[in-house]
């Protein structure tokens, strides 16, 4: 008996005799339905509530006269977040995708001179660095020390961290909102609609954008891929001054997230 048949029987709850009876009843116009089949008793579909978390992790870095920098690698080890108790780019965010884009921004220039740094995202008092090569290598522990050291050196020197004209390149919030909404309406949503998905722009703060993924995108195991390779690329291509892009979707909530 095939594994598929075995699994099918496990889920239907019917005995092998019942199955055999069904299988050998071919020839009649209306094959007999097995008793207690999975189809007869559909599972109750419950809505998943996302509860409020009462105890969160303590604040990463607090106010202090000393420069405090805390490193936090992502779960997949592909990027590392650096939380600093000093403003780096107050009220705004900026992504440096390569060394050329770092020109005249001392912070990005210093970080790109560190081996293996691939991209640098600066947002308020946070820095997110991705590294080249496989996600597991090189180890963040060593790389984070170099990134932290370069950042600390600039902060101690008190020099400007970002190019002076960067702020001038960022239009008003309303313009950012309108342009991103246009990309969502004309490019992103028609693209994800084929999978029953939809993207909603929730907030724009400065040039930092937060979206929510709905419909088939919510809870989908490919949501991260859609976000990074589809949405990020579309936003950045059409709106080059967009900074950080966050997804605030509750992928575990709802009626039936795909990954469950």
């Amino acid at each position: 008996m095939s594994v598929i048949k075995k699994l099918s029987q496990m889920f239907s709850g019917s005995s092998s005799q019942e199955k055999e009876a069904v299988e050998t009843s071919g020839g009649s116009d209306q094959p007999a339905e097995p008793k207690n089949s999975f189809a007869d008793q559909p599972p109750v579909q419950r809505r998943v509530i996302q509860p409020a978390v009462l105890i969160e992790q303590a604040e990463a870095v607090g106010p202090s006269d000393q420069i405090l920098i805390k490193a936090e690698p992502s779960r997949d080890n592909g990027q590392c977040k650096f939380m600093v108790n000093r403003p780096l780019f107050e009220g705004h965010s900026w992504l440096f995708s390569n060394f050329e884009e770092a020109a005249e921004s001392p912070l990005a220039e210093a970080l790109f001179s560190v081996d293996s740094v691939e991209t640098v995202l600066v947002h308020d008092s946070t820095l997110v660095v991705t590294k080249t090569g496989a996600k597991g290598l090189p180890d963040w522990e060593a790389l984070a020390k170099l990134v932290g050291g370069a950042l600390r050196k600039l902060l101690e020197a008190g020099t400007d961290l970002m190019a002076k004209d960067l702020i001038d390149r960022i239009p008003a919030e309303e313009v950012v909102r309108d342009e991103i909404q246009k990309v969502i309406d004309t490019e992103v949503n028609p693209g994800v609609a084929g999978h029953g998905g939809r993207i909603t722009l929730t907030t724009v703060t400065g040039n930092t954008v937060t979206i929510e993924m709905g419909g088939g995108c919510q809870g989908c195991s490919a949501a991260d891929l859609t976000l990074k390779q589809g949405i990020h690329s579309a936003f950045r291509k059409a709106v080059p001054y967009v900074g950080a892009i966050y997804d605030e979707t509750d992928h575990a909530g709802g009626l039936n997230p795909y990954y469950r």
């Binding site: 805390k70 490193a71 936090e72």
Partner: peptide, 10 residues
């Protein structure tokens, strides 16, 4: 809840 991410001072 996923395990908390490791953090350290640099």
């Amino acid at each position: 809840q996923d395990p908390p991410l490791p953090t350290w001072d640099v």
